[in-house]
Amino acid sequence: MLGIVLIAGSIAGVWLVVAGARTTEPVYAAAHTLVAGQTVEAGDLVVVDVALGASAGRYLSREPLPGEAVVTRTIRSGELVPADDIVAVATVKTATVVVRTSGDVPASVVPGSVVELWSAPSLGQGEYDAPRILVADVVVAGILDEESVIAGDGMSVEISVPRSDVAGVLDAVAGGDALSIVPTRG
């Protein structure tokens, strides 16, 4: 009799473990790459059912998004969306700016890439000072005219920069500085 009770208990235990492992929860994943500073709308997210166990609370569930939600870091297409990486727009400390580069942008630079924005200050007609890093750790939000640009004629790149650096970037653009996007390694 004791043997039957042990076998029944063992079967029930295995059944509970298997049933618990099959428990999934609906959470959001990125429908496409979302870049830091981007406003998130319902079409930017897809619902996926995943087994997360104890870490389920770390990810954005199927609750309504906060009003005017913004991404705080790049989230790749298909990646689960961490709840801490979606915040209200009022708390964002970056701004999106479009710059025109003086030359082509490397092919490795895509939305979500972290790059440096270099500037060679204009000294006058066709003369430039030595280049320097204007802003480091800039996130590329988009390449705006990659298909229509003539090789070597520059490109318009949308970047997300810290608000404290916006004035410097706009000053460089207005001053006619030669701007370059340089991918970071590391």
Rank of each mutant, 00 (worst) to 15 (best):
A69S: 13
R100T: 07
S10I: 12
A167C: 10
L34S: 04
A88E: 09
T101I: 08
Q38D: 07
T24R: 07
V169K: 03
V114N: 11
L123W: 01
A30R: 09
G186D: 15
T24H: 05
L123C: 04
V17W: 09
V5Q: 04
D44R: 02
R100I: 00
E63V: 09
A130K: 05
I133G: 00
L16S: 04
D165M: 08
D104H: 03
L60R: 01
D85M: 11
A107M: 05
V18T: 03
V139G: 06
G20M: 09
S77L: 11
A151G: 08
L6N: 07
V115K: 08
S156M: 12
G37T: 03
I86F: 07
V139I: 14
H32C: 14
S102A: 13
A83T: 07
V166Q: 13
A21I: 10
V89I: 13
A56Y: 01
A90M: 00
D44M: 03
R163Y: 13
I159V: 13
V169D: 01
L2I: 14
V157T: 04
S119T: 07
A56N: 09
A178M: 12
H32D: 13
G112M: 11
V97Q: 12
Q125G: 08
I133N: 00
V18F: 02
A12D: 00
S77C: 10
I75F: 05
A172I: 06
A136L: 01
D137M: 03
A30Y: 08
I4E: 15
V161N: 02
V92P: 08
E116T: 14
V166S: 13
L144S: 10
Y128F: 15
W118H: 14
R22F: 03
I86W: 04
E158D: 15
R76E: 13
L45W: 00
V169W: 01
R185F: 06
V89W: 09
V17I: 10
P26V: 14
S119N: 00
A12P: 00
S55R: 02
W118T: 10
A174V: 03
L60Q: 05
V92N: 08
P26N: 14
V46I: 11
V70A: 06
A107F: 03
V169M: 06
A120T: 10
V92C: 01
A51T: 08
A90Y: 00
T96M: 03
A95Q: 14
R76W: 13
T91H: 13
V169L: 10
A36Q: 12
A83I: 02
R185W: 00
T24F: 01
A56D: 11
A12N: 00
A36N: 11
Y59F: 14
I159Y: 01
E68A: 11
A31H: 09
V81S: 10
T101Y: 05
I150G: 02
V157C: 09
A83H: 03
A12K: 01
G9A: 14
A174F: 00
L45P: 01
V110Q: 11
G37L: 05
S10W: 14
V71Q: 07
P82F: 07
R73D: 15
I133H: 00
V40T: 04
V18K: 01
E116V: 12
R73Y: 11
T74V: 15
T23K: 07
G112E: 09
S122L: 08
G53T: 10
V40N: 02
